[in-house]
Nucleic acid binder design. Structure first.
Length: 425
RNA sequence: GGAGGGAUGGCUGAGCGGUUGAAAGCACCGGUCUUGAAAACCGGCGACGGGAGACCGUCCGGGGGUUCGAAUCCCUCUCCCUCCGCCA
């Protein structure tokens, strides 16, 4: 949520930030109008309330000294009704303004490249060598089926398209990667591990910005009005909703969760394989940081995500998203993409974003500023990293001519010593 | 699912119709003392909104009601605790 004061005081800057993102800055005019009306009525009502408070106090004194107050009380009753009517109106104004503000996306950081879609994203760096093969590299679907790592057909039988059943070594690989990534973040990057619920309430979904705008992308349980989380970002960020964090910043949390996405707008896209699924697993990093350092903290969070891929010796590249490709809540975002030889393409495995105080305002997460006053902090998060596409890259990059997979050295201990996945006999 | 009890500032916790926006303690900030720190003592210290400011208003889990006036009384919802039942 944008700060209404910022809209009042720095309208041009906010307008530019929204325009960069491809949002229509005209919504700001409506917000300012609502705000103006709201404040005018508020001042008027406060005057009346001040009078009521003063007279009511007098009535108490008069009664104590035994005087008759019937007449004053009658006139106050009329004033009370007037105030009640104004309160109803005031609440409606307040709500309209709040709704309008919730619907406005975050502004893009000034470093954001212009552009309306992914084609304008800017390459920041590439890391690692793209492997060459003296045979035609297979895609991960064929590899996973040949090696009995994933049962796509039975996954679909259980739950439909977009759900898979990992089997045997494939299932173990999921568990190993989850544990490996959590270990690296905790022991090498200084994150605190948490294990949150996979289902959250409406307030949590609103706090991080998924609601109200993206409702149709979420799985919803109507009987309890609960949502399946699309990312650990939602429960982890909301841990501190409506709180003043007293711990020193930055506060760094990491979590593994399953993620659920209806992918409503992507029907029919990437339906085969592990590229785009309704349920997938992900290790996430979330940081609560001082506003003064949030852009530095974004760089180190990005480095933490890259470190995972470097340790796994996988080729990747980092892109900075252009305005049009930025998500609703993000001010700045880097994507990390892994090279997948079987797809002959780059696959996004991580988005690292600075939300500035956008989420902190919605979720009312604060810390004590240097002057001792509570202040909205900045939130940052990033995947560290998403499992299915990581598995795709491990399979497709590690494949050998005989159809076996050479596993990255770093996860061998997590695989019980297994360094190569062979065709089952 | 049944029966009771509870929700007050960053935390603990008094108050149960009228100088209570809220006692007290903790935490925090400033000062005295000290070589320094601790202790002790003195002072300050809730949040949000409006206003250039003096200042004004709102907020005692959420919503509604009674009243001239509600943290305080009534209704309702949510969450927490205790006991019983059920249960991976």
């Amino acid at each position: 949520m944008l700060d209404i004061r910022r809209i009042r005081d720095d309208l041009d800057e906010v307008r530019a930030g929204l325009a960069l993102k491809g949002a229509d800055p005209a919504v700001l005019d409506r917000v300012l109008e609502l705000d103006k009306a709201r404040r005018a009525r508020l001042t008027e009502m406060e005057g009346l309330k001040g009078r009521r408070n003063a007279v009511s106090k007098d009535i108490g004194q008069l009664k104590r000294s035994g005087e008759d107050t019937t007449e004053v009380q009658a006139s106050m009753r009329a004033l009370g009704e007037e105030i009640a009517a104004m309160e109803v109106e005031g609440r409606a104004n307040e709500e309209a303004l709040h709704e309008a503000l919730l619907a406005i996306p975050n502004t893009a950081h000034t470093s954001t490249p212009a552009g309306s879609d992914a084609s304008s994203n800017v390459l920041v760096r590439e890391h690692g060598d793209i492997p060459t093969f003296d045979f035609k590299p297979k895609g991960h679907v064929a590899l996973a089926e040949d090696l009995a790592l994933v049962d796509f057909a039975r996954g679909a039988k259980l739950s439909g398209a977009g759900f898979v059943l990992y089997t045997g070594t494939g299932a173990r690989l999921q568990r190993a990667l989850i544990q490996y990534m959590l270990d690296v973040h905790v022991t090498h990057h200084g994150y605190r591990e948490v294990w949150p619920p996979s289902v959250v309430n409406r307030e949590s979904m609103t706090g991080t910005g998924q609601l109200p705008k993206m409702a149709e992308d979420m799985y919803h349980v109507p009987s309890d009005d609960l949502y399946l989380i699309p990312t650990a970002e939602v429960p982890v960020t909301n841990i501190y909703r409506d709180e003043v964090i007293d711990e020193p910043l930055p506060l760094k949390l990491t979590a593994y969760t399953p993620c659920f996405r209806r992918e409503a707008g992507a029907a029919g896209k990437d339906t085969r394989g592990l590229i785009r699924m309704h349920q997938f697993d992900k290790v996430e990093m979330v940081k609560f940081v001082d506003p003064a350092t949030s852009y530095d903290e974004l760089e180190t969070l990005l480095a933490d995500a890259e470190d995972i891929l470097q340790r796994l010796e996988l080729p990747y590249r980092v892109l900075q998203l252009c305005g049009g490709d930025l998500s609703f809540a993000a001010a700045k975002c880097y994507d990390i993409e892994l090279w997948a030889p079987g797809q002959n393409d780059w696959l996004e495995v991580s988005s690292c974003s600075n939300f500035e105080d956008f989420q902190a305002r919605r979720a009312n997460i604060r810390h004590r500023a240097d002057n001792g006053k509570p202040q909205h902090l900045h939130t940052i998060n990033g995947s560290g990293v998403a499992l299915p596409r990581l598995v795709v890259a491990i399979l497709e990059n590690g494949q050998r001519a005989d159809g076996s997979i050479e596993l990255p050295e770093a996860i061998v201990p997590y695989m019980g010593g297994l360094s190569r996945i062979e065709r089952p006999s």
